[in-house]
Every structure is written in structure tokens, then in C-alpha cells.
Design a binder for these strands. Sequence first.
DNA 1: CATGAATGAGTGTTCATTCAT
DNA 2: GATGAATGAACACTCATTCAT
Lengths: 211, 211, 211, 211
Amino acid sequence: MEQTPDQAARLARRERRFERRRLEILEAAAQVFADKGYESATTRDIANAVDMGESTLYNYFQNKREILLAIVELKKVEMDEFLSQIDRVENRQELVELIDQAMLIVFSRLAYTRTLFGEAWRDPQVFDIAQARLLRIYDLLKSYLDRHILDGHFRPVHTDLTTRMIIGMFMAILAPSTFGGQPVPTAEQRRQSAEAMADLLLAGITFGINQ
Amino acid sequence: MEQTPDQAARLARRERRFERRRLEILEAAAQVFADKGYESATTRDIANAVDMGESTLYNYFQNKREILLAIVELKKVEMDEFLSQIDRVENRQELVELIDQAMLIVFSRLAYTRTLFGEAWRDPQVFDIAQARLLRIYDLLKSYLDRHILDGHFRPVHTDLTTRMIIGMFMAILAPSTFGGQPVPTAEQRRQSAEAMADLLLAGITFGINQ
Amino acid sequence: MEQTPDQAARLARRERRFERRRLEILEAAAQVFADKGYESATTRDIANAVDMGESTLYNYFQNKREILLAIVELKKVEMDEFLSQIDRVENRQELVELIDQAMLIVFSRLAYTRTLFGEAWRDPQVFDIAQARLLRIYDLLKSYLDRHILDGHFRPVHTDLTTRMIIGMFMAILAPSTFGGQPVPTAEQRRQSAEAMADLLLAGITFGINQ
Amino acid sequence: MEQTPDQAARLARRERRFERRRLEILEAAAQVFADKGYESATTRDIANAVDMGESTLYNYFQNKREILLAIVELKKVEMDEFLSQIDRVENRQELVELIDQAMLIVFSRLAYTRTLFGEAWRDPQVFDIAQARLLRIYDLLKSYLDRHILDGHFRPVHTDLTTRMIIGMFMAILAPSTFGGQPVPTAEQRRQSAEAMADLLLAGITFGINQ
DNA sequence: CATGAATGAGTGTTCATTCAT
DNA sequence: GATGAATGAACACTCATTCAT
């Protein structure tokens, strides 16, 4: 009851150890889920991947499903934060840069992405999270479009549908690596893809930018 | 050895009955798989959906997996055949029409599509089928682009990436109904989406069409 | 109600056809049971072996088990009848001949024998039949021994145990072909085996026959 | 990394517990297989016999078949070791003793024997094990015969066939208890059987031993 | 905190048998 | 008499989860 400072330190360390171990599990589980899908992945698979006993998992998570949810909630903000930079995009070059960086982020956590979208339409709760994430991105993009249509930079397109199509274009570029088992593109290829996307996108939504 | 006509007729009828029943099962199973995913769907679920005994399924299919494969192989050609009409597309109006019809086809078999793409990245065999289907579409679109770039109708874009992005745009439009649980759009909404897609697409790949 | 002669003939023919078909089934089923064992053999296996529909079997037998019982009851007498000749055996040469013929009989229906002894200790009813058959043989042999001990041809051995051991010797010779998957011996090999058995047997149960 | 002694002790105890439990299962399963046969015996039967949950079995064995194989491999050597004593047999009395002891060994594990021979001609792998065991015994006996024929103690019989027949005689004596459901013989009956066998056997393979 | 052991509730699949045609 | 189709009752096996240690 006394040794407060000592105890507190010990507790904090324990806490950190606990949190670190939790993350290890999530990392490994994300990979397993990405490979086999949530249903096909067994708790034994996960335990093996973290190199711990199966039952030990239950010291860190209530059940298998909670692991899934923890994964998909993880780093939920990162992309949003990054994408808020879109407001600073003022020319083609900056747009290319933004797309390029966004791709990099996705590739840096392929397993998470695969898991998220792989289970989203099975599991309503996961779906909600995926939707929320996409919605955040959707909002950023749409308001960007709206604004620049207003100020005359872009043609008056149907911003709802267009925003969705932009996301579709982006995912189509990522798809081969994310879902198709293709290797992650090199920096050069990534840049090329970003250029192509900016090209298709801009030449469609701006007046005669190419002329 | 004689009664050929009678026997043949009986055999043919049996054959048809068998095939019809098989299709009933596939229809129901596609719905179940679309709802729950292949792994979570049980043979009991399927049997209930067709309103037959669980074991009766095995008179029509060797095992659960064969049902999945039969579903994803089903109607494999329909979309390809339709899309070959793209060569006849010569102006914006015809493009809108084509997109509109393509959407209609997808919506007419939502369960199949969901099942196909839902399992594609779990199951290599399903993946191959999905890829083959997409590749056929990809080829049709890409050669269309290539041709019209040559004859000067389109800007010289990166046709590989652009083709993929076009598919991405299309899927982004379908996504809410296909994967998001949203209701299938009305004819009006469909037309509006087709217009928006043609708009974004053409204004990007043609020279100064808006000017 | 009238055409008695015609009807009777037709009925008799039908009866014969029926009996013939029953035997075909038993023949095929015996082979299947011999190969796979009763439990592992399926009614489908049997139906395939007779080249008929699975359900057609049930026009000839009440159920799978009845097929087994019909098999093991079949030809139950043949060996008994043959062995009653043992009373006429008066010298070594005739004994060799008898053993040789007995082996021939067993080899002529390997499948039946395998089935009978294969299921005998699983199925009490089959066991009873097997036991009854062996008992009949046992009785014939034992009374033969008893008689010839009385008349001084044989040493006064323990006839119960000795009879059983004689049967054991006989089965040991048959075992490789019957249970071991070895090919049925040639006439020459059979004769050699019969000689060896007579040799071991006689030199043991007669006084100084070799001296 | 340090507490080696403690950890090692705990591990060893666990190991022993595991092995003990494995044996319990094998013991019970052997009985079940002996009673019903491998195919008819269910995993539930086995589990009930060991008084554990059905699924718990699978913590000790990969599948039902592995239980069978573990049973038939168990104690594979015991009989061989014992029978190597045959070389020390020099007179009738010692032979009787040997046979008596061999019977005792068989009776001490009736369930194993029944299971082994009950499945041997169904399952090639079990067959191989049964054959190997018999072959070992065959070799010991045959070389014993060969040797004593050479040194003039035995008549020049056909040693291959004779060896097999000896095994047959032995099994014929065991058969009632092993396969026929008869009670295991008393020590007195066992001795009597051994005497009878030695009697039949010796009087056949030795020159005038009775005279 | 870690884990081996145990298990109930399912899962896909088999198979003998029935029945309408 | 022959059979395709249907099915209930099992069966071996899996797996997430619990619990004593």
C-alpha cells in the first residue's frame, strides 16, 4: 500500500509490456487473417504465428472476434490525417505526390487492408468501420471537389458519384498487390501509377488543363 | 433394346429435371454464400434455402466446394459477350447506354458477383476464374482504348493503368449495392451514374471535348 | 384363374430368374465383402459390382445384413459332404488325396471363406454359422480319430485338442492365399502342401510309421 | 532460462502424464476394437470407454486410424524376445514349458491380439505389422527346426510348411478364447494344451521319440 | 502471465434404406 | 422388376473457449 512510486513504475512497465504484446498479436493475426480469411484462420494459427500457447491469447483478448475488431480499428486515423493534406494540393505535381504517398501508406499495411476489406461485407461491425474510414476519405475528397468547382478550378461534375469513382480508381491501382497477390510496386512504378491517375482524373475534372 | 423413343424421352426429361434442380440449388446457395460468405455458410443453410435435406445436396454435387465452383463458373460468358459490343460505341450517348446495360447485368445477379469476388482472394481456384473474367473485360477495354488512341479519338494515355482504373470506376459505382447492402438503384439513378461515369471518363481521354 | 399350365410355367421361369439374379448378387457381394470387409463395403459397391441400381438390391434382400447372412449360409454343405469321405481314408496316400481335394474346395470359393471368417468374430450370427461349419468338420475328424485310436491305428492322443490342431494346421496352409493376398498355389504346390501336412500329422498320431 | 531443474522436472512429469493417458486410451480402445471391430467401433465408443470427451482423444492421436496403428505396434517386441528362448529348449519338458508360457503371453493381451488379427486383412498397414510379427516368430521356429534337423534330432521335414503348421496348431489352441469368446483357460487347462501340442508336434518331427 | 488439457457445439460428409414412378 | 431421388441418423473430426495449475 505504501511504495507508491515503485509500484507505479512497475505497473506502468507492466502496462507497456502488455500493450506491446497485444500489438505483436495483432500484427501476426492481421497477417494470418489476410492470408486465410477470418473464418478459415484458427486461433491455433494465430498462436503459432505469435509463438505462444493458444490459451494465452485469451489473456489479451476476450475472443477471436475481438482480435479481428482490434485489428480493423488499429491505425484507423493514419490515412485520414494524411489525406487532410489534400487541401494544400494546388497543382498536378502536388496531386501526383499525394497519390504516391497515399499508395505508400496502404502498402505499408497490406495485411490490415486486406483483413478490413476482406471481412467488411461479412461482418456488419467490420463493415461499419470500413465504411466509416471510407466515409472520412469520401468527405475530404468531396469537399475538396465541391470547393474547387465553386472557385472555378474544376468542371461542375456530379461530386458524389465522382468522389466514389476516384476512390474506385485508386483501389483499382492498388488491387493487384492488395488482393491479387502481385508484388508491391517499386517506387518508380508507384510514381507512374500516380501520374496516370492524376492524368485521367485531372483531364476529366478540369477545363482544358492539357490544352 | 427397342423402345428407344420412349426411353430417350424419359431420360431426357430426367436429365432436364436434374439440371433444373441443380440450378435451383446454385441459385439458393449463391444467395447464402453472398450473405454469409463461403466459410460461414453451412451445408444446412444451403439445404434449408432450397428446402431439401442436407444429404440430398450430395446427389447433385460432390461437396460444398463444388457448389461454390459451380456458382462462380455459371454464366461466365454473359458479360463478355455483352461487352464485345463496345466496338460499336462511337459517341458519348452510346457509351452511356453501354455502361447502363452493363450495370443492369451485374445487378441481375448480385449474389453471383458477391460470391465470386467475396471468395476470390481466399480461394486460388475462384481467384483464377475471377481473374479470367476480369481479364477478358480488361482486354476488350484496353484494345478499344488502343485502337482509338491510334485513330486519334483519344489522348495517348497509359492504356494498361487506365483500363484498370476504368474497371475501378465501374465497380465503385456498383459497390454500394453489391457490397454495401444498399438497394439496387432505380433506372433513373442507374442512368445518372452511367452519365457521370461517361462524363468523367471521356473528358479525360478525349481531346478538348468540353471546349 | 384358368390358364394354369401357362401361368405355372411363367411363374416357374420367373422364380428361376429371380433365384439366378439373387445368386449373381451374392457372388458379387461376397467378392466385395472379401475385399473390403462387411462394414467398409457399401451397398453402392455391391450394386456396382452387379451392375444394377442400388435400390434394386432391396428387391432381392431385405437389407445389407441379409446379404451377408445369405452369403455365409451359401454352400454350407459342400465341404461337409466332401469331408464325410474321410471314413474311407485308409492309408497315407488317400489322406494326401483328401487334403489336396479339401484345399481345392476352399480355393474355389475364396471370397466366401474370407467373408465368413472375416465377419465371424464381429457378428454373433455369422459366428454361429462359422462355428457350426467348423463343428461339423470337427465332429467328422474327431470321430475318425476316436475310431482309429480304438482300433489301434493311432496313438491315444487327446482327441479334442488334436482335432483342433489339425484344423489349425490346415488353415495355416491356406492362410497365405486366403488372408495374405498370396496367389492360389499351383496343383504341384498344393500336392506338396498336402504331403507335408499328412507327413506331420501321421508321424505324430501313428506308432512308428516312419521307422 | 535458468530454472532448468524445476522446469525439467515439471516437463518430465507432464510427459509421463501424457504417456500414461495415451496408454489408457490405447488399452480401452483395444478392448473396443476387439469387441466391435475397427470400422464398427466409433470414436464415441472409445471416448466413453476411457471416460473422456470425444474431442479429447484428438489431443493424443491425430485420428481414429492412428489409434489403431498405435495399438498394433504396441508391445511388438515382447513375444519375439520371449520366443528367442526356444534355442535353449532341449527336451519335451522344456518345450511344454515354452508353449505354456507363450500362451500366457497371448492371453495377457487378448484385446491387442484380436485387434491385430481382426484388422490385418482389411488394412494393409496393419497387415504388414501382423506379418512382420509372425515372420519374426516364423524365422525363430524355422531356424530351430533347420538346426535340429542338421544335428539329427529331427526328421528331415519340409521346414517352411511345417513351421507354418506349427503356428497354425498354436493358434488353433488359442482360437476359442481369442476369437470364440470362450473364457481364458485355467493354468491346468493351459498345461494340458501345451502337453497335447508338444505331443503332436514332437512325435512327428523326431525319430521314434515315443518308442 | 502462461499453458496443457479438456470439451460442447458444430461441420461436412457418408450410407443404408424408402418411395414414387 | 428397376431405379433415381430423397433423407435421417450417424460419423470422424475441428475449433473456439474454459479452467486448473
